[in-house]
Lab assay of single mutants.
Amino acid sequence: MQIFVKTLTGKTITLEVEPSDTIENVKAKIQDKEGIPPDQQRLIFAGKQLEDGRTLSDYNIQKESTLHLVLR
């Protein structure tokens, strides 16, 4: 499924993921596309910060959901 990741600069990254993918996994995909190390990434969905060990389905993230990427 496709999800979108919006950065603070207003750029939107499109990722191909599975509901069973972990947040860690998603961060690795963002690193592949954008070169941002996962340890600098914070992903936010519905106002919650997403934890590395959880999966997209844990957070009920469905196709075409938009996550927000904050760098630390």
Rank of each mutant, 00 (worst) to 15 (best):
Q41D: 01
H68G: 04
R42P: 01
T55F: 06
R54Q: 05
D39R: 14
E34R: 04
I36E: 03
Q62W: 14
G10V: 05
T9Y: 11
P38L: 13
T14Y: 05
E64Q: 05
K29H: 08
Q62T: 11
Q2A: 14
P37N: 09
G53L: 06
L71F: 07
G10N: 10
F45Q: 04
L69M: 04
K33N: 08
P19N: 06
Q62H: 11
Y59V: 03
F45A: 05
G35K: 09
N60M: 09
Q31W: 09
L56A: 03
E18N: 08
G10K: 04
I23S: 04
Q31N: 11
L67A: 02
Q40H: 07
Q2C: 02
S20P: 10
L69K: 00
N25C: 02
E34S: 07
N60T: 12
I13W: 14
T14L: 12
D21K: 03
S65K: 06
S20T: 10
A46D: 13
K33R: 13
N60H: 10
K11F: 11
G47M: 07
D58R: 03
K33V: 09
I13P: 00
S57P: 04
H68D: 05
A46I: 12
P37F: 13
I44M: 06
I3Q: 00
Q2W: 08
E51V: 08
Q41M: 12
F45V: 06
I23F: 03
F4W: 09
L43N: 00
S65T: 10
T14A: 09
K29I: 09
G47L: 09
P37W: 06
G47Q: 06
V70K: 05
V5C: 02
E18C: 02
P37C: 03
V70M: 05
E16M: 13
I61Y: 01
F4E: 11
D52A: 09
T66N: 04
Q31K: 12
K29Q: 11
P19T: 11
I13M: 06
I44W: 10
E34M: 07
T66E: 13
V5Q: 00
T22A: 12
E34A: 08
H68N: 07
R72T: 15
Q31T: 14
I44F: 13
D39A: 10
F45W: 10
P38M: 10
R54I: 07
P38Q: 10
G35E: 05
T7L: 05
I61F: 02
Q49G: 08
V5A: 05
V17E: 01
I44H: 15
Q41L: 05
D32W: 15
Y59D: 02
I23D: 00
E16R: 13
L8G: 10
A46P: 01
I61W: 01
I44D: 14
A28Y: 09
L69F: 03
I30M: 06
A46N: 11
L71E: 14
I13E: 02
L67E: 01
N25A: 12
D52M: 10
M1F: 14
Q49H: 11
V26W: 01
L69H: 01
S65M: 06
I61P: 01
L69W: 01
G53P: 10
T7E: 08
G47K: 04
I44L: 14
G35L: 09
S20E: 09
I36A: 07
A46V: 09
V26K: 00
M1G: 04
S20W: 10
V17F: 05
M1A: 04
N60S: 06
